[in-house]
Design a protein around this nucleic acid. Structure first.
Length: 621
RNA sequence: GCCCUCGUAGCUCAGUUGGAUAGAGCAACGGAUUUCUAAUCCGUCGGUCAGAGGUUCGAGUCCUCUCGGGGGCGCCA
């Protein structure tokens, strides 16, 4: 029944049968290689199987194509094939029958839009955010949740069980340094722990980093080059001060680990302030990440020591120069030369240790069959090490399937400014997320207002918010995620072109048709009328609609949301051409109703697709 | 030094896993609106797919090398 929706699978079935009949000597099923025709004048689809087949059977490819055509049962699917259908070295051009196209559209026109629930559903864990406590959010935090949430939504749409994970950097010495500093400031009356803002925390974080930074290199230089007693004294004072702050931070870390009430309370405040900002940003971005997805490093802290003991006991980890490492040279662990370091000489654990514990939890406890890391491309080596170590440790072996979970790094590049350098303010600072979102919405508001001068401020604000977020997210999602992408307000909010607003606009125009239809009392007979696919623009729109299920599956397989963006842009383009060429409401009878039906399916696919991407939609703009 | 990644039109990017004459958007130019939102549509212009070999009926796509950009490489996270 699924085959009846998608012309490609329908044709694949018919042509595979034909090949089997025409060439019984060939073992197994031959893929007929059915593709959409890149030139609509030639046909709707093409079969490219004749060329590779010719080699296997030792025949001229055009003769092979002839034999396929003779054997294919085209009944009810495509127009009759003849020698004229064969082109070039052996391409077979296929033109769909109109009634078959309409039948496919009717099959697509269900609540699930041709995407039934996966059976059986998989459990898929998506790591889609990793903010750090006491650090202001900036542009660099944008891509992971936007892309990760789109991937997570894709799997949910396909009926899989998705577990989102926000791997918060909320533990370790850096955090202890902030806690120590804040406690000291509070003691001196220079900070009120009950009214902390993230800006204050960010400042404290930077100050603490600076304070604990021992200038040992400077001291060495002073001694080596004999720069004099004054320089020596300054350097020694700096180092001794830093050492004191450092020591204090270490003591604070110990207190944190033992959950000393006063220390832990300060840590909780820092966590609450940071998370409130983080989750607020997610909400505004229409990213489905809430407190329940929080899986901070602190939540693994107690698991690390026993886990490492286990690894040592089983010989997975081995000592090396005082530290503890896991070797990964074997092909089954990734053929990685650099070993994975899991315990420092001083006994401390590293982020790889926590990440291995995370995989163990995600596979063993959550039952994850597929673990997806939507993280910066720079973390590639680290993740490959962690994946390899988890496999070696057995932690990645799924308890039910007894095979390793599929662990993937959905890497993404940096956000660049117009100069091709990572996006920064003029003074070289990271751009705060808040101001980025504000400017986007403000610019969107100006665009909305200029088009609709009489619109109320209230409605304008609501629309600007949605248009802004759509523009921002679409701009990020529409490019191949692994590449760096160039950020530009002007381009993402452009009045024309491949943008979020363009897609929203296409949808709004369809909504408007139905509003007008209601005003003109058109009635609902169109719901029982088959969609039209006669005129060129109608047919192209119909063909575009039928590609939807395959596109969503492709996104899930490759973890590439930009395929859905590309598709939706083409769908919106097909609709815009249709809108231009085929008047809906001014038409009458079956034509009007068939076009209304086509509009309805288009609106639902557009809306569904945008929802899968996590982009908000509008009724008017 | 080793590893990862990218290189396609003036600019920003696609290219459905090897198929026909490589496509969009922007920019430039020319058209289209008494009709459902012109944030639109139609057309023109624009290419040594970084370069060189190789694999084969066929390469932007696969393999090798070179050049160039970005990133990473055990005691930070």
């Amino acid at each position: 029944m699924q085959a009846s929706i998608d012309p490609i699978s329908q044709l694949t079935e018919r042509f595979a049968d034909a090949i089997a009949r025409a060439f019984p000597q060939i073992q197994g099923v031959v893929d007929p290689i059915i593709k959409a025709c890149n030139q609509p004048e030639l046909g709707d689809f093409q079969c490219n199987a004749a060329m590779p087949l010719a080699k296997r059977v030792g025949m001229n490819p055009r003769e092979v194509a002839k034999a396929i055509i003779a054997a294919v049962d085209a009944t009810g699917v495509c127009e009759p094939l003849s020698e004229a259908s064969i082109a070039g070295p052996g391409f077979i051009n296929i033109r769909l029958r109109e009634d078959s196209l309409v039948a496919s559209l009717l099959a697509l026109d269900r609540p699930d839009l041709g995407i039934p629930k996966a059976a059986p559903p998989q459990t898929i864990v998506v790591d889609l955010m990793g903010v750090n406590l006491a650090k202001q959010m900036h542009v660099g935090h944008l891509r992971s949740p936007i892309i990760g949430d789109a991937i997570a939504r894709t799997f949910e749409r396909l009926g899989h069980k998705v577990v989102r994970q926000n791997h918060v950097g909320d533990w370790g010495l850096p955090i202890a340094m902030v806690v120590a500093r804040l406690m000291k400031l509070a003691e001196q009356g220079k900070a009120d722990l009950n009214s902390l803002t993230l800006d204050q925390l960010d400042a404290a974080y930077k100050a603490a980093q600076f304070e604990c930074q021992r200038d040992l290199a400077g001291l060495e230089a002073v001694n080596k080059y004999g720069l004099g007693p004054k320089a020596l004294a300054e350097c020694e004072a700096q180092v001794s001060g830093a050492t004191e702050a450092f020591t204090q931070a270490r003591q604070t870390l110990v207190k944190l680990q033992t959950k000393d009430p006063a220390t832990y309370a300060v840590w909780e405040k820092i966590r609450d302030v940071t998370m409130a900002v983080c989750l607020g940003a997610c909400k505004r971005l229409h990213v489905n990440v809430t407190a329940e997805h929080n899986a901070g490093e602190s939540s693994y802290a107690d698991e690390l020591a026993p886990m490492v003991d286990d690894l040592v006991a089983r010989g997975i980890a081995e000592p090396d120069q005082g530290a503890l490492i896991v070797r990964l040279e074997a092909p089954e662990f990734g053929s990685i030369k650099e070993p994975c370091l899991i315990r420092k000489t001083d006994g401390g654990y590293l982020y790889a240790t926590t990440d291995i514990a995370a995989i163990r939890r995600r596979v063993q406890k959550f039952g994850g069959e597929r673990i997806i890391y939507c993280i910066d491309a720079r973390q590639n080596l680290h993740l490959r090490q962690v994946f390899g170590a988890s496999i070696k440790a057995g932690y990645a072996i799924h308890p039910r399937t007894r095979t390793p979970a599929l662990m993937e790094h959905a890497a993404f590049g940096s956000v660049l400014g117009a100069n091709g350098q990572p996006l920064k303010t003029r003074s070289g600072e990271n751009i705060p997320l808040e101001s980025l979102l504000e400017e986007t919405v403000q610019r969107a508001g100006a665009a909305v207002k200029s088009r609709n001068p009489e619109m109320s401020d209230d409605e304008c604000r609501t629309i600007a918010e949605a248009v802004g977020m759509a523009a921002l997210k679409y701009a990020d999602l529409c490019n191949d995620r692994v590449r760096d992408y160039m950020f530009s307000f002007d381009r993402m909010l452009a009045f024309e072109g491949n943008t979020g607003p363009y897609l929203l606009y296409a949808l709004v125009r369809i909504k408007s048709i139905f509003r007008k239809a209601a005003e003109r009392a058109v009635g609902e007979r169109w719901k029982q009328t088959p969609p039209r696919a006669s005129e060129h623009a109608e047919k192209q729109l119909a063909l575009a609609l039928l590609r939807y299920p395959g596109t969503v599956h492709g996104v899930a397989q490759a973890l590439e949301p930009h395929r859905l963006c590309q598709y939706l842009f083409e769908l919106a383009g097909a609709f815009s051409s249709f809108f231009d060429r085929c008047p809906v409401l001014p038409s009458e009878g079956e034509v009007r109703d068939g076009r209304l039906r086509l509009c309805d399916i288009t609106a639902r696919v557009l809306e569904d697709g945008l929802h899968v991407l996590g982009i908000p939609t509008l009724e008017r703009m």
